[in-house]
Each structure stands twice: as structure tokens, then as C-alpha cells.
Amino acid sequence: MGVFRMHWMIANLKQMMKMHKKNQRDVPKGHLAVYVGETQKKRFVVPLSYLDQPLFQDLLRRSEEEYGFYHPMGGLTIPCHEETFVYLSAQLHVL
């Protein structure tokens, strides 16, 4: 995947964030709410700095493949197990 496509994905993510700003009032500036889980979705608030990390970018690619621009929870939905996301978030927090 090229740099252009990643910039395009991030731009679309920012646009989606603006559209759902009403539902994100409890999200601190510089953060993003995401929904994670295979069946039951759990909401996580992550820093925007994750967008620069290859591990998180891989999750964004999976999200795009699974949902396109339709996210059933009204926000960015990431199709992975909650435990996996917690583990990856811990890895990103250390970086």
C-alpha cells in the first residue's frame, strides 16, 4: 500500500470524525474513539498519534476492507478481538 493511499485513508478518517463530533463530546482533543470487537463492540479512546504507527495503520486497512466507509457503530469500527486490540494498544503506547 502506498503513501498516497494511507494519506487518503487518514483524510477520510478525519472527515468521519468531523461528522460524528456530536457523539464524541467526551473524547479529549487529540484522541479518537474506536469500536472494537468481533460480535459485541467495545469503545476505546486512543491518541491520534496512533495514526502514524504501522500496527494501527494495519488495523485501519482491515477496517476499510471489512466496512469500507460504513461503520455500523457510527464511529470507526475495527474488526479484531478486544484482547488483540488491548495488546496492540499496549505495544503502541510503549513506542
Rank of each mutant, 00 (worst) to 15 (best):
K18T: 06
N12V: 00
F85D: 01
L32P: 02
E38I: 15
F44P: 01
E83M: 09
Y35F: 12
G37M: 07
S49F: 00
P47A: 05
P47L: 01
V45E: 06
V36W: 00
V34P: 00
G75H: 12
F85H: 03
I10D: 03
E82W: 08
A90E: 10
N23K: 14
Q57Y: 05
H81M: 08
V36A: 03
Y67E: 04
W8L: 10
K41W: 02
A90Y: 10
L48G: 02
Q15T: 05
F69C: 06
Q53I: 11
K21W: 02
M73P: 05
H7T: 10
V3T: 13
E66P: 01
P47W: 06
A11L: 11
R25L: 12
S49T: 08
L59E: 04
A33H: 05
V46R: 00
L51H: 06
K14P: 00
T39W: 08
W8M: 06
A33D: 11
M1G: 12
G74A: 09
F4H: 14
I10G: 06
Y50L: 05
H93K: 08
L95A: 11
Q24Y: 04
Q53L: 12
G30S: 08
P28H: 12
Q15M: 13
H71T: 02
E64A: 14
L92H: 07
P47H: 09
S49P: 00
G68R: 11
F4P: 06
M9H: 12
V3W: 07
V27L: 04
D26F: 07
V34K: 01
R5Y: 06
R25Y: 06
Y35W: 14
L32N: 03
K29G: 08
G2T: 10
